[in-house]
Design a binder for these strands. Sequence first.
DNA 1: ACAACTCGTTCACTTAAGTTAAGAAATGAA
DNA 2: TTCATTTCTTAACTTAAGTGAACGAGTTGT
Lengths: 193, 193
Amino acid sequence: MEDVLFDFMSKYISLTEEEKNVIISLDIFRSVKKGTILLKEGQKTKDSYFVLKGCIRTYYVIDSEEKTTGFYTEMEALTPPCVVSKTPSEYYISCIEDSIITVSNSDMETEINSKFPKFDIMCKILTEELLAKQRIDFDEFKTSSPEQRYLNLLEKRPDLIQRVPQYQLASYLGIKPESLSRVRARIADKNKG
Amino acid sequence: MEDVLFDFMSKYISLTEEEKNVIISLDIFRSVKKGTILLKEGQKTKDSYFVLKGCIRTYYVIDSEEKTTGFYTEMEALTPPCVVSKTPSEYYISCIEDSIITVSNSDMETEINSKFPKFDIMCKILTEELLAKQRIDFDEFKTSSPEQRYLNLLEKRPDLIQRVPQYQLASYLGIKPESLSRVRARIADKNKG
DNA sequence: ACAACTCGTTCACTTAAGTTAAGAAATGAA
DNA sequence: TTCATTTCTTAACTTAAGTGAACGAGTTGT
């Protein structure tokens, strides 16, 4: 399982066996059952997550309704904003499939980064890439209609549509579940003729 | 004018006079007239911007329509995604008020960061804060209606509504100018009684 | 001063999303 | 398997956004 992480990291930096062993000794690998809530609204945490296998989601509860804003699958990292702002979390993180993830807290990262400058470089690149990617995702969201957003998702993350419940996808696309149903019906109609 | 930048930086790191002089010697301060286009679609660039005074905006041209996705005002930094991805820009950056900005390219930043580790630390903090802020902005956008988004903007960046043309605000809010007109009329109605 | 533009608003109309409610389909647990 | 729960879809209705067109206020340039 560790190999998945090391393969990912090798895209950014090269690792010696010794460095790999340091990472393994940190004991950050976790196996998490579907339905597990990793973080609740109001909780404080310093933990960041990296998904090796499975899927986790972030969601707010607004007027007792879940509003899903993010899905994180294989090779994706999530540092909750509350870790950066050092305030209680505004949202929940839950595991929507049996998953294998790493859980690392910011103190650990600081320590590793000071020991191995390589990690720091990798983190910097990852953060910058993520910032640019998120900026583009946001721009695409703003400039397109719900139907276009669904088609876009179908193209870019077709797996999500298979593995995630519709009502969670709906708020991810900024609409209600009933609307998503209609969008899907509309698209199916068009494809028939 | 430099003082505005140094005041901003002093929130994150302390600077010696010598370090300030190094920054000044880089000659990154620019005075830019309203209407100036800083970056065009299809262009390549390594430049990042920081607004000391004024306002710049990012916009796409889709079906010969401008879609504004971001405004950057006093004390805000913009690194276009194309700088990170090293591809041609997908959008335009233009100056919507007479402004004073800094323009720094990524090579310069790399050089300064290696000379003064302090800068590197500041950049890392800034990037992480920005990532978290953007994540929250995106989440808020997804989970609210156009009217709520307008009210939210009215609360958080009231200056924008004064200084920016409505048609640019509209796409920033993910709607058409005509719809923004109606949203405003609706809100004005409610406030009357 | 005048014409040409730009920008914001309004109107009538179309399309799509929100809402409420009901029922079908899928899932999970006993 | 059966029952209960959750999830998805459909329908009827309401509300709001998209569209095309027109108008007036404000600007710019000549």
